[in-house]
Design a binder for these strands. Structure first.
Lengths: 343, 343
DNA sequence: GTGAAAGCGCTAACAA
DNA sequence: TTGTTAGCGCTTTCAC
């Protein structure tokens, strides 16, 4: 049982393909009675004309860009998508969003889908794990399909627009050190996340560039969700003697920082007087939280805009353009969860 | 200057279309030297094969559903999209998301794009305003294109899966009345939002079904963003004599409820002892907020799942299925921003 | 290994 | 008002 075509409808209705086509396209030239009849037949057969075939004739004028994010219910990615959307819309493009949920296979499927549906180009937040597969990216290159990665991927020469994660965490640690903090610890992100690794490295590197000494015990595995921050916070601070509390916790992201803040509030540990907290990302709620979260602002909006700008430039180029690599810098937002102890 | 085709590449490279096609598809039957040569030419011409034409042959096996949301950076919609995604993925479908940003024209463009790209069906959070246009929905019906609306639209008979907004707000008001609150006011949503109107009506109706008397002065225009709630909160409570504070504020949504909470905190007005607050939606952060927000839980996840279920059933049906209409109920989550005064 | 030719499902002239 | 026909840009046999 194969899918029915316009031809089947035509035969069933006793008219020609051309007439059926005219009905589908709402042409006024069709007699009302035949139009009704053809519609009846279409309904009876549940016939759905194939979009691909409809558009084959007459060149494409439509403009679309796709973005592959890693998590749907993460404000990090929606903020990013919003930046992309802003630039894209200005240029007359519609943005399609799909989420890989951090699964290689999904990323591959979606990227091929974008290409096969003539979405003009894609911005990809690549899934990166131990045995990373990038064959699908090569397949895109083979098609001269324009795309921009939101993170450097080993083994492929492609457009990249990214954030300097390492520097971001260094910024936080350096600030804490400069304001008189010692005993700084890190609530680290998920094992497999490369962001998490980069931020751990930034943490470590800040020590090696200072007079304070790094130790592995400063790295507390945590996670990326509010609950992770909350539970790790409760566990950690319940076990530790109040006299030996760390002076500051640098968190993998804002969400766990807020979880931690909530945990300390429950344990009646004062922030920032007993413990300072620094987040990372500067999500919308961070500045509204009480106490307002000191955090490293990730320029997501600018990241999205830049990625979109690069992508659309490549989409619209006659010639193949040289590959570009842009790295955006973060900025520390000092708010209420940290104290300057030198004052 | 028209777009180049596989034919142009073939001529330029001095081979046949078939060979170029084989190169594009990575067939092993092509001699390495010719493959390289063809690739060179493709690059030089910046030739991108047309996805639509590539897929015309060989029937579609790919499964995709589209969703048109109204705002990208609104957790309401991402939660919804997550519910849809969950069900869709289970059934082997990829989800494409696009945002209309509450603009009719965009909604229309996106819906036609979905149909023309053979996205198999769509879930639409329709833009509804004073002079609503639904021609594009009729166009979808003409194509027997399966779609589900997330809100009833006057004038079209289509699948609808929706939330009972009116009942949701009534639930909140009724609870407050039952727990001994009088002087209840409503921080209302945006003028043009039909959600806002429904919630205002729910507020009003709750009074007409009680012994308390409604007055227009209970309706305070506010908005939908955190900042709206915060600013309206400051304005309102600064102007009012503390002795005449309302006992409770029912908010259009959680976001403004949190803004209000923040404003009252700043004004040193105690929640819930001086003023109770009830939100609406139950966004993720509501239960983590301090004090945890009492709110009406909107079953977004279930809404998404249900919409996806209906859509996919219609996509996969041989026959055209009868139109369905589902209304999901909300549920009150009593947390820390309200007090039972009868105890 | 490669080329020639027959479609894929539809649209858009043009005839009738 | 409707039917006929020639493509749209690619893939895919099947000869050569």
């Amino acid at each position: 049982m194969k899918k029915s075509t316009i031809q089947d409808v035509a035969e069933q209705a006793g008219v020609s393909k051309g007439t059926v086509s005219a009905v589908i396209n709402g042409k006024a030239t069709v007699k009302a009675s035949t139009r009704e009849h053809v519609r009846e037949v279409m309904k009876a057969m549940n016939f759905r004309p194939k979009g691909q075939a409809r558009n084959l004739k007459g060149r494409q004028i439509e403009r679309t860009v796709g973005i592959i994010i890693r998590e749907l219910d993460n404000p990090f990615y929606t903020a990013l998508a919003t930046g992309i959307k802003k630039y894209a819309n200005e240029k007359g493009y519609v943005e399609f969003i799909a989420s890989s949920e951090a699964d290689q296979q999904n990323e591959e499927t979606i990227s091929q889908l974008f290409a096969s549906k003539d979405v003009k180009g894609a911005i990809i937040a690549p899934v990166i794990n131990e045995n990373i597969e990038i064959e699908h990216l090569f397949r895109l290159k083979l098609l001269n399909y324009p795309f921009v990665l939101l993170k450097e991927v080993q083994g492929i020469h492609a457009n990249v627009v990214s954030i300097n994660n390492l520097e971001a965490t260094k910024l936080a640690v350096r600030y804490l050190m400069e304001t008189g903090h010692t005993d700084i610890i890190h609530f680290a992100g998920p094992e497999l996340s490369s962001h998490a690794h980069e931020r751990i490295n930034g943490f470590r590197q800040a020590f090696s560039e200072s007079t304070q000494i790094f130790s592995d015990s400063m790295l507390v595995p945590c996670g990326s969700q509010f609950q992770d921050g909350f539970e790790t916070g409760i566990d950690f601070f319940k076990r530790v003697d109040p006299k030996r509390f760390p002076m500051a916790v640098v968190c993998f992201n804002d969400v766990i920082a807020l979880g931690l803040s909530s945990a300390l509030h429950q344990l009646k540990i004062d922030v920032p007087n007993q413990v300072s907290i620094v987040g990372n990302d500067d999500i919308e709620i961070a500045k509204h939280w009480s106490p307002a979260l000191t955090t490293v602002h990730t320029p997501l909006h600018e990241l999205g805009m830049k990625a979109a700008e690069v992508l659309i430039r490549h989409i619209e180029a006659d010639q193949i353009l040289p590959v570009e690599n842009h790295v955006l810098d973060s900025e520390l937002k000092i708010r209420e969860t940290t104290l300057d102890l030198t004052k």
